[in-house]
Design a protein around this nucleic acid. Structure first.
Lengths: 182, 182
DNA sequence: TCATATATGTCAACGTGGCTGACTTAAAAT
DNA sequence: ATTTTAAGTCAGCCACGTTGACATATATGA
């Protein structure tokens, strides 16, 4: 698919279409973030807390520097957020076994609960968009987004996905569908 | 395509996949913004200036309140940015003809130049992602993003697209491809 | 073992870009 | 004539990013 040179597809590479895509990305991201904002206000947390909770939840036992690389912010910025979350009892830090300088981060039960609360509407919104547009569109969505992200993170994402696929092979195929809950 | 009920597609609606999509969106947006950041620094502008320049460029003669609706910020926030851009000679304000309370915003020649400079790398990045993934993926990308945005803006986007398509019918098909410049 | 590099944390100061609230002005709409 | 709307302004505040300078514990390599 997609031999560029041969395609007369007007959707391709015209500046207007690129700008259209940029604008869609802006609106989508704006509205996606807004889904969590009232919940954040309720918990008296900011978006930075949300991001930290999210990534710690997604990458259990991630180290501080690992988290810094994902978020691309300075450790001074992150440390404020992490201090808050520790104080609120939402995350825990445990020293690394192999390398005791590291701090491995994990959500507490409370952290898990808050994180789920924060992303619930976002997941619902994304699920609705996925449902409305179909598996093929979702696949394209993912591919283009992957194409936008940096080499390193792209490889990390793809590796994680492969790994997840492997660890599911022993599970009977039925189980995989059964989990659909949104 | 995409009858959800009948599909055994494991990509669909599992929480893990939704979270995967959320993360991709985050990374893509993060990296997309970063493309413009050095240029912004060079011009001594902030991201808020970029957004204003972009949307004024995309929506010529937009009013202040129109811009406020797109950006979803307060007029106090916007006014700082607009004041800067006027001072720098990048935008111009002209009173409305029908309604003289309104200020219609437009980029000056300098504003156009700076805006193009700001989005150049972003357009190149998006173009690369589009090229790599193909027309079908791009279509899915757009559909899912449209599904994420609010009713009002979604309709506005689709209307604009339809209108653009109409206004191009008189143009010979060849010309449409010829413009591809990235 | 000693020197260096790394992982983390901390203090201080600052900039951007959001926000609320209060109030003004001009013009449109009823 | 009154009310509503579009825009602007002043003031103060907050979240969250930044730089820079240092401190500490641990790991690692010569």
């Amino acid at each position: 698919m997609a031999d560029l040179k041969s395609s007369f597809n007007p959707l391709f590479l015209r500046e207007e279409d690129l700008r259209d895509g940029m604008e869609l990305l802006f609106f989508a991201y704006r509205d996606f973030l807004e889904e969590a904002d009232q919940v954040l206000a309720r918990h008296k947390l900011g978006r930075a807390h949300h991001r930290a909770l999210y990534f710690i939840g997604q990458h259990p036992a991630i180290t501080v520097s690992g988290l810094l690389k994902l978020l691309r912010i300075t450790k001074q910025s992150l440390s404020r957020v992490l201090a808050d979350l520790v104080t609120l009892g939402m995350i825990e830090q445990t020293p690394g076994l192999r390398d005791r300088r590291q701090r491995h981060l994990a959500l507490t039960a409370k952290g898990i609960e808050v994180e789920r609360d924060l992303t619930a509407q976002q997941r619902a919104l994304l699920a609705r968009a996925y449902r409305q547009t179909g598996a093929e569109a979702v696949d394209g969505f993912r591919k283009v987004l992957l194409g936008l992200i940096t080499e390193g993170d792209r490889r990390a994402m793809m590796a994680r996905r492969d790994q997840a696929a492997e660890s599911e092979q022993p599970v009977p195929a039925r189980a995989r569908v059964g989990r659909a809950g949104l």
